[in-house]
Design a protein around this nucleic acid. Structure first.
Length: 894
RNA sequence: AGGCACGUAGCUCAGUGGGAGAGCGCUACCUUGACGCGGUAGAGGCCGACGGUUCGAAACCGUCCGUGCCUACCA
């Protein structure tokens, strides 16, 4: 390939690697907080610093990039803040695994050294996902990249904590929480995922101390019986009447526990008798409060049985279950075992079975915060798109319980609270206090717990802009414009950002939230590494190119429906990318020697030019409408259809003779219009396909009126209503349908593509006659005609040795002198007539229905009449044609 | 158990009150000077089932079947 020429196929790998660094180095992603342009700002949902780009990120970030690039083209000052979060538990787990590989433990090396190890790890691997985002083409302002553990963001975290504490919205208390025995930390309720487990329901006999019989309880967790402090029955349950207040002897134990009555107990479930273990079950804990029961913690933090479990002390909880069952059986206490499937809480980070536990933790009292967050959405200060998610948002907000924010891990923001060893005072302060404010003692010890990662994420929209300082960035870019996210973190993140933003900025964190689909596998399951059903976006980019992947994701991004991604379709869009490349190639090959700049000439007379310009006007408007309303799939669809099926299939084919012909003026106009439209389409397409559009735009630059450095700085095609041309569109439709009719006949009659045919068109209307006369060349070129005879219907005789059809009011004949087979032409006509008659019958039925004529709107009736008339005429003409063919066939055979 | 989606061409999916659509796949033909990652033509659908509203339903309502997701304290 000679220098400057374009490769025959688009080589995406080479192109993509070139432009991203060009954009970045030239600062095209950088936002100017002093700009006078209107702001458009987005904060990225920060991926875990431990993470790898998965297909969900690819979708999420592609959509954000589309919005950002679109708004830049539209003249906004765009800020897209990137960054990562420290993912406390997940990252700690990763680094602990590494330590384990070296034979070390975090407790072994100590807190300080462990934290150093995590920072080292982050320095080494933390940029992986950032680089993957770059590979995707994300136009983030990397000069403002943030990390939730940065000093600035940590300062924001401390200030928020102290403020909420002083306002009484953060408190420390002993409450039931969910505990992960593997991660060794408390979890928020929302971080517990219910998973179906097939276990068993064990029926166990608890003998009455009185000796008169026994109560049978049913449980899925027999090991907790060691911590039972009561047996509960429903007061309405006749089976157990009179037992309330009696004592039962707890098997495998010396203890006697009371029978209590509480309406909470379901009579129909199990045996109707419930063992009560207040230390290890949320509901049992509530029963304890009502009935003043003892609490016996028999499982401790590692998931092992505690001292209180007597002979079972030190056993793992699941091993203990087995042993207890054995012992119960031996003692004759196990009455029945039935298989039972139920939902059990699992840690969302490590998938261990969580343990409900009574524990001293820090909590945010969320009710007052949630109130404001709901109001803001109700009042429309923040719009959730699609609106159906508002229900889920309200529903969740209304049923909120206090948020447990302390974690017993080492990687995260250490809670800014100190305990006085002398007097027990709790001091909460942004900076370490020198002495105890109460007793002036100096032996203060900082709380060892750290904060939930989502606590820092909830501040993300303003902490990343410099809060608590009053920065220009906050002034210019807060509230942010749009948050783009999947629904699965609506509660984890979006809801909490709403609460914190309203509290600390007194303004919503974002004007709009676009909730996009989740990418699922072919069976509709969530993709996850453990299931092995992931589609790796990096692999897709390697195979099909980034633009193709982005386009596929965009075309799939329908509101309110999850995405079942298919690789075939990504491949299909790679072909589209190649098609664009080749359209550009055709043009560039023809621009050589052309004097720029390309522009739409003042006066355009050619039909095809008027048509494509008019169509482009519409497509531009539709593009804006789609993007302004987050209709991403429409956006993709629109451009695909226009570029391939209108611009390439028709327009370029039509102007080719001008490009290759000798008419200089026609050639100049064709080049100008074709190039101007392509250049503008590139801009429309740029948000979704940044790479190829930049590549072509740059190659077209020598002829372009735009002297900018990059397509990123181009301006969005202006609306030019004067180019809208309904007449040209209508006339083109007529010409195109004549061409399609001829092609159809050629195809049906098996005329070789290389064979040129004579065509006769008979028109009712003079306007059609004139139109076809003017566009004679277009028809001949695109339908492969050697000649086109035009005539007035009724005046010009219809050719016999021809296959014919009807297009609107135009009769079209393809002369097939010696090759016409009357038999197959009759069959073809017959087939078409049958099809049309079905439609005709349907419209006729409608038009003979009085109800329809009376109740349907006039324009619908008119349309129906018109259609009916058209069909009737067409059928008549075809029938006459059929008669002639039959006659000819008989003549021939006789 | 409750709630929310979704069942449209072989596959993946658009369309949401008045003529059943796209991409891929399939069939036939084609080295037409951008592209075979292409071109032209074509086959393929009682729009999950049943009932209702309506002049008119793939679309709106109800019931059922199937699938998926979310929420819940029946141990």
């Amino acid at each position: 390939m000679s220098e400057g020429a374009l490769a025959k196929g688009y080589e995406f790998a080479e192109v993509e690697s070139r432009w991203y660094s060009f954009w970045e180095e030239n600062g095209f992603f950088r936002a100017d907080q002093t700009s006078s342009k209107p702001p458009f700002s987005v904060v990225i949902p920060p991926p875990n610093v431990t993470g790898q780009l998965h297909i969900g990120h690819a979708l999420n970030d592609t959509l954000q990039d589309i919005l950002c690039r679109y708004k830049r083209l539209k003249g906004f000052e765009v800020l897209w803040v990137p960054g990562t979060d420290h993912a406390g538990i997940a990252t700690q787990n990763v680094v602990e695994r590494r330590l384990a590989a070296e034979g070390l433990t975090r407790h072994g090396i100590g807190r300080e050294a462990f934290q150093e190890r995590v920072w080292e790890w982050r320095a080494k691997y933390g940029s992986i996902i950032i680089n993957q985002l770059k590979r995707l083409g994300a136009s983030c302002d990397w000069s403002r990249e943030r990390f939730t553990m940065d000093e600035g963001l940590s300062r924001a975290v401390r200030q928020v904590f102290v403020t909420l504490y002083n306002q009484g919205l953060i408190y420390r208390g002993k409450r039931m929480i969910n505990w992960c025995p593997r991660c060794m930390t408390a979890l928020a309720n929302i971080e517990v995922e219910g998973e179906e487990l097939s276990g068993a329901l064990y029926h166990i006999r608890y003998p009455l101390v009185s000796g008169k019989g026994a109560l049978i309880v049913a449980t899925t967790r027999p090991e907790t019986m060691l911590g039972d402090t009561a047996v509960a029955v429903n007061p309405q349950d006749n089976r157990y009447r009179g037992l309330e207040g009696q004592m039962v002897a707890l098997p495998l134990s010396e203890r006697h526990i009371p029978v209590i009555a509480d309406s909470y107990v379901e009579r129909e479930f199990g045996t109707g008798a419930l063992k009560v273990t207040p230390a290890h079950d949320f509901n049992d804990f509530d029963l304890r409060t009502r009935h003043n029961l003892d609490i016996l913690q028999v499982i401790e933090e590692r998931g092992q049985m505690s001292e209180l479990a007597g002979p079972y002390a030190g056993m793992d909880r699941f091993a203990c279950r087995k042993q207890i069952l054995k012992d119960l059986e031996k003692g004759g206490f196990l009455v029945k075992t039935e298989p039972y499937t139920h939902r059990v809480g699992h840690c969302y980070r490590c998938h261990s079975v969580v343990e409900p536990m009574l524990s001293l933790q820090w909590f945010v009292s969320v009710k007052p915060l949630a109130q404001k967050a709901m109001e803001a959405v109700r009042e429309g200060k923040t719009k959730i798109v699609p609106v159906k998610w508002e229900n889920d948002y309200f529903n969740w907000m209304e049923n909120l319980e206090d948020w447990c924010i302390s974690r017993q891990i080492w990687w995260g923001h250490r809670i800014p609270a100190w305990f006085c060893k002398d007097c027990g005072e709790v001091v909460v302060s942004a900076e370490a206090p020198g002495k105890c404010p109460k007793c002036s003692g100096s032996s203060l010890e900082q709380e060892s717990d750290v904060l939930d990662t989502w606590f820092s994420s909830s501040l993300w929209p303003f902490s990343t802009l410099g809060w608590p300082d009053k920065t220009l960035e906050l002034q210019k870019f807060y509230p942010t414009s749009t948050l783009v996210t999947a629904f699965d973190i609506l509660f984890f993140w979006v809801a909490r950002m709403m609460m914190m933003g309203l509290r600390f900025m007194e303004e919503v964190p974002f004007r709009e939230v676009y909730v996009h689909a989740l990418v699922r596998d072919a069976e509709g399951h969530k993709m996850s590494k453990s299931k092995g059903n992931v589609i790796d976006p990096l692999l897709m980019m390697d195979k099909y190119g980034t633009d193709a992947l982005r386009f596929a994701l965009t075309a799939f991004a329908v509101q309110g429906r999850d995405i079942k991604l298919s690789e075939e379709r990504i491949e299909g869009y790679k072909h589209f990318v190649n098609k664009i490349w080749n359209a550009a190639r055709l043009l560039l090959m023809n621009l050589e020697g052309f004097q720029g700049p390309i522009d739409v000439p003042e006066k355009i007379t050619g039909l095809a030019h008027r048509w494509i310009l008019s169509r482009f006007q519409k497509v531009t408007a539709e593009t804006c409408h789609a993007l302004d309303n987050y209709l991403f799939n429409q956006y993709a669809q629109l451009l695909y259809q226009f570029l391939w099926h209108e611009y390439c299939d028709w327009y370029l084919e039509i102007v080719k003779p001008d490009l290759y012909g000798e008419d200089m003026e026609a050639g100049r106009v064709a080049r100008s219009v074709a190039a101007a439209v392509l250049q503008d389409v590139l801009v429309l397409l740029h948000p979704v396909m940044p790479f190829i559009t930049e590549e072509i735009w740059q190659r077209m630059k020598p002829w372009s009126p735009d002297s900018g450095a990059s397509i990123m700085g181009a301006s969005f095609p202006k609306s030019r209503p004067e180019l809208l041309d309904p007449q040209a569109e209508e006339q083109m439709e007529t010409v195109m349908s004549v061409i399609l009719a001829i092609r159809n006949i050629r195809g049906e009659m098996n005329v070789a593509p290389s064979l040129k045919v004579e065509v006769v068109c008979l028109c009712d209307k003079d306007s059609h006659l004139e139109l076809l006369e003017r566009e004679r060349r277009m028809v001949c070129d695109l339908a492969k005609c050697s000649g086109l005879t035009l005539g007035k219907a009724g005046e010009t005789p219809k050719p016999n040795q021809a296959a014919g059809t009807v297009v609107g009011n135009i009769e079209v004949f393809v002369i097939l002198k010696d090759i016409l087979d009357f038999e197959s032409e009759s069959a073809r006509l017959q087939k078409e007539i049958v099809k049309l008659e079905k439609e005709f019958a349907m419209t006729s039925r409608k038009l003979s229905n009085d109800d329809f004529l009376q109740k349907a709107p006039p324009d619908v009736i008119e349309k129906e009449r018109e259609k009916n008339g058209r069909l009737g005429e067409k059928i008549e003409k075809l029938n006459r044609r059929l008669e002639i063919m039959k006659g000819l066939r008989e003549n021939k055979t006789t």
